[in-house]
């Protein structure tokens, strides 16, 4: 009884504080002239719909296709490697494209990012290959104890 009451109060408090904070942010966005509202709104809509209706479904579809014909023992490892690859790419892409480079400032984006990205990808997939080899060998020496239901 007391737990449910304290839970109810925690929930109310969270929602009330959340409404205040979010409203403060929304009012800030609407009134701060430096935000430049039309461009801000356009960017917001682009990332929201771009993620929900393009990037995420595409990632799910590509992941499903790429792992579809893999044997059961290999599938989770490759799925994990794909998660790492995709999220690393999100961070690396703006650097690899290099639009932030400036001729007057060689210390901004000073590295060879396509090379760095390639090194990271190589690291991911070398580790993945090593894990797959170990799994494959182990599978050969010890037969899978869990009986598989006939499909």
């Amino acid at each position: 009884m007391t737990t449910s009451r304290s839970t109810a109060w925690t929930r109310r408090l969270l929602v009330a504080a959340g409404v205040l904070a979010a409203a403060y942010g929304v009012v800030g966005v609407l009134t701060d002239r430096s935000v430049w509202l039309p461009n801000y709104a356009r960017y917001m809509v682009t990332v929201l719909f771009g993620h929900d209706l393009l990037v995420l479904p595409l990632a799910i579809a590509v992941g499903a296709v790429l792992t579809r014909w893999l044997p059961r023992w290999a599938k989770p490892v490759v799925q994990g490697a794909l998660v790492v690859t995709v999220t690393l790419t999100v961070v690396a892409l703006p650097l690899v494209l290099g639009y932030g480079r400036r001729p007057d400032n060689p210390s901004a984006l000073p590295r060879d990012y396509p090379r760095g990205f390639a090194i990271c990808l190589a690291a991911i997939w070398l580790v993945t290959a090593a894990v797959l080899v170990v799994r494959g060998l182990r599978r050969r020496s010890v037969p899978d104890p869990t009986p598989r239901e006939s499909a």
Partner: peptide, 9 residues
């Protein structure tokens, strides 16, 4: 602020 507020909600 919008993020932290809507997260609390």
């Amino acid at each position: 602020w919008i993020l932290i507020g809507s997260l609390a909600i």
